[in-house]
């Protein structure tokens, strides 16, 4: 009877160990899959490959990602700002020169008159 009990206990232990191993293997399998996905994306990033937008438009942040502003346009518009400022400063410079030249002329005129 003792031997039979021991055999039964050993069977239980073997069954439980096997189930443990199976669960561990399944978990490992899923973890490896996740790592593979992560590695593929990292490699694409390093190779500077543009990510397919359809990929992340399925994600929870699709709304934010689809409303991304055109940063290049913003940077390019800075040139326009400087061009505009160049014109403004030129204009101001011109106006002030004009005023000074008028004052010069007027000074000369009064000298002549006096």
């Amino acid at each position: 009877a003792l031997e039979a009990s021991m055999t039964e206990i050993k069977e239980y232990i073997a069954r439980l160990s096997l189930e443990c191993t199976n669960w561990d293997q399944l978990l490992l399998h899923h973890q490896k899959e996740a790592e593979k996905i992560s590695r593929t994306l990292e490699e694409a990033k390093i190779a500077d490959i543009e990510l397919d937008s359809t990929l992340y438009l399925q994600s929870s942040q699709s709304e934010i990602l689809s409303t991304k502003p055109d940063y290049q346009k913003i940077l390019d518009s800075q040139n326009e700002v400087f061009n505009c400022m160049e014109m403004v400063i030129d204009e101001l410079q011109g106006s002030i020169r004009l005023l000074y030249s008028f004052m010069e002329d007027t000074t000369q005129f009064f000298k002549k008159v006096s």
Binding site: L41, L55, Y56, S59
Partner: peptide, 15 residues
């Protein structure tokens, strides 16, 4: 779930 995870990872890279 695998596809969703891939999408979320893609979103992370984009962000």
């Amino acid at each position: 779930l695998r596809l969703r995870y891939k999408a979320e990872l893609g979103a992370k890279h984009a962000l």
